[in-house]
């Protein structure tokens, strides 16, 4: 067991993937000489050479599409798109090619492609570098969407994704990169099917993922100090959703709060709420509650950005409201 940062865990995962399988290569903007915009691939160019650590031009659509082609051609590409905001330039390749080729070809082709990207706000990067659009990806049949929130998952989910026959999209919350945690490299392949219960409590269930997990856990600690017990569920897999784990928890706590950095309208929180209502309506003692980002392009000013995002304080408040008045 070693204590390392999330960034180092991603790097260790990349290194393990590249060492394990000759077909694996990494490509993306500034992944080589620069070392990765978030330094996840620093040192890998020296270690694995320019054929396997490939700096690309700023051509998101084409290098994601080339990842699809390389996967069809027998390679195991890992594509880094710097952030989810830039990935919109490649959405056509994702939606119309990566996700459809297997079905459209009547099962003749699979696309074993991994795409990683940073997501999320909280660093005063304003409206073009701060969004959480995971739900757009989670909407698409034919792909798997992962959101590793822990150091262990950052490492293990990437490696497990290598064994997936279909496209896998990994969302790494940018605020997590410097965060430290324990990594046990002996644990073996990560489970890519299930959510994880990260904190136990009996009064409500907080469902969240990615960067918001740590805010939810901090909120759970504060709530506990006030005598309110919260289950905190880390979704981990955003498509396909592991609803049985959520519903099992809600059946015990009878209250659910969904925390999501995406905008409220059309959010993943909305989907989860709907599924809780469909699957556990008669277990609920209160309406499902959602805490999402304010419906505004992310502002630059610190106090405004803080107000736009779910925070520990607002999670605590929403949880108390749900438990006492809901």
């Amino acid at each position: 067991m070693t204590k390392i940062t999330y960034r180092e865990a991603v790097r260790a995962g990349l290194r393990a993937a590249l060492s394990r399988d000759e077909r694996v290569f990494l490509m993306g903007e500034d992944v080589g000489r620069y070392g990765g915009a978030y330094a996840c691939s620093r040192g890998l160019l020296d270690e694995f050479g320019p054929e396997r650590i490939r700096d690309t031009p700023l051509s998101e659509s084409t290098f994601v599409g080339a990842g699809i082609g390389a996967a069809l051609g027998g390679m195991r590409p890992i594509v880094e798109v710097m952030t989810v905001n830039f990935s919109l330039l490649a959405l056509d390749q994702v939606v119309n090619n990566a996700a459809t080729l297997r079905h459209m070809s009547g099962g003749q082709f699979s696309v074993p492609l991994i795409v990683r990207m940073a997501t999320g706000g909280g660093r005063q990067l304003a409206a073009q570098h701060s969004h959480s659009l995971e739900v757009w990806y989670a909407h698409i049949p034919g792909i798997r969407v992962l959101s590793p929130a822990t150091v262990q998952d950052a490492h293990d989910m990437l490696l497990a994704a290598l064994d997936e026959p279909d496209p896998v999209f990994l969302f790494e919350h940018a605020l997590l990169y410097p965060q430290e945690g324990d990594l046990d490299e002996s644990l073996g392949p990560a489970d890519l099917e299930h959510a994880a219960l990260r904190h136990r409590g009996e009064h409500l269930t907080i469902v969240t993922y990615g960067g918001s997990l740590w805010k939810a856990l901090a909120a759970a600690d504060r709530l506990q100090a006030e005598g309110i017990g919260a289950d905190v569920i880390d979704l981990r897999v955003l498509r396909p959703l592991d609803m049985p784990t959520v519903l099992e928890s809600v059946a015990r706590t009878h209250r659910a709060l969904v925390v999501d950095e995406g905008w409220r309208t059309g959010s993943l929180a909305g989907e989860i709420s709907a599924q809780i209502i469909e699957g556990a309506f008669y277990e609920l003692d209160a309406p499902v509650s959602r805490l999402c980002s304010a419906e505004v392009p992310m502002p630059y000013a610190q106090q405004l950005e803080e107000a736009a995002l779910p925070q520990v304080q607002s999670i605590v408040a929403a949880a108390k409201e749900l438990v006492t008045h809901g």
Binding site: T62, G65, A70, M75, L101
Partner: peptide
């Protein structure tokens, strides 16, 4: 035969990727 692509231009990046795989292998 890697398919007919019906988003105009959408097949080109895929072709580049297939060729990349062939080069690497």
């Amino acid at each position: 035969f890697y398919g007919g692509y019906a988003i105009v231009g959408g097949g080109l990046p895929v072709a580049v990727g297939l060729a990349l795989a062939d080069r690497l292998l």
